[in-house]
Simulated scan of single mutants.
Amino acid sequence: MTMATANWDETVWRSGHTAWKWVAGYGAALALAGILPLSQPVLAGLALAWVLGFALIVAGALALWAGVSRRGWRSEWLDIGTGLLSLVIGLGLLASPLFAAISLAWMLGFWLVACGVAELATIATTRLHRGWLAVLGIIDVVLGIFLFAADPVTALAFLGFAIGLSLTLRGISLVFLGFRLRRY
């Protein structure tokens, strides 16, 4: 490890130390938002516009706030971009539940693939949390591709599970990161 890299890592970890409670709280909120669709995937699939739209709005608002306030742990553009995308898709689900029931698998598949690709791309620009970013990015891309390829009935039942798993794992990773930041 070069001296510049060591100083960069130390600077990033120290600045994160002051925000560790927020990072852990943000992660806990995301994990809780993911439990609802994960615990009732069939119900979530049937009530898709309301349950998943609300979860995406909460996740989007948190990510957007993290990016705008610069309290997130990753780059602002990633938090703002995924936050805006989550808000737009979440509001779209609530605006037209019937249309959402027909096209939800594709919209959520797109959201998962876009978030996964963004997380994988972020690995090249950050040293923090690379392992979790890689795991989350791969899971999101695989789940998104599955939703694109699944028949409508399977996709409907799988929607709640896919979003719940994504939000819960993302939240758990941020809780771990928050407690790791606390040590520095």
Rank of each mutant, 00 (worst) to 15 (best):
M3I: 14
A4R: 07
T5Q: 14
W8E: 14
W8Q: 13
D9F: 10
V12D: 00
V12G: 00
R14A: 13
G16R: 03
H17G: 10
H17F: 05
T18D: 15
W20T: 03
W20N: 04
W22N: 09
V23S: 07
A24S: 12
G25S: 15
G25M: 08
Y26Q: 06
Y26L: 09
G27S: 05
A28Q: 05
A28M: 11
A28I: 04
L30W: 02
A33G: 04
A33C: 10
G34F: 01
P37T: 06
P37C: 05
S39V: 08
Q40P: 00
L43Y: 15
G45W: 02
L46I: 12
L46R: 09
A47N: 12
A47G: 12
L48H: 07
L48C: 14
L52G: 02
G53R: 01
A55H: 02
L56W: 13
L56F: 15
L56I: 06
L56N: 08
V58W: 06
V58C: 07
A61M: 14
A63M: 10
A66R: 01
V68W: 10
R70A: 10
R71V: 08
W73L: 13
R74I: 00
W77Q: 10
L78N: 00
L78E: 01
L78V: 09
D79C: 03
I80Q: 08
I80K: 04
G81E: 05
G83Y: 01
L84T: 13
L85N: 03
L85C: 05
L87E: 05
V88D: 06
I89P: 00
I89L: 11
G90I: 02
L91Y: 12
L91T: 06
L93N: 04
L94S: 04
A95H: 07
A95N: 07
S96V: 05
S96Q: 09
F99Q: 10
A100R: 04
I102D: 15
L104N: 09
L104E: 11
W106D: 14
M107Q: 09
L108Q: 04
G109Y: 03
G109F: 02
F110D: 07
V113E: 03
A114C: 09
A114R: 05
V117I: 13
A118P: 00
E119N: 13
L120D: 11
T122D: 15
T126G: 06
R127D: 07
H129E: 15
R130S: 12
R130E: 15
W132A: 15
W132T: 13
L133G: 02
A134Q: 05
D140N: 14
V141I: 14
G144D: 03
F146H: 01
L147N: 01
A150C: 10
A150H: 06
D151A: 11
V153S: 09
T154W: 07
L156R: 13
L156P: 00
A157D: 11
F158N: 03
L159G: 09
G160W: 01
A162W: 06
A162D: 08
I163A: 00
G164Y: 02
S166H: 13
L167Q: 11
R170C: 10
G171I: 05
S173E: 04
S173P: 04
L174A: 13
V175H: 05
L177N: 03
G178V: 01
G178E: 04
F179R: 09
L181A: 10
R182G: 11
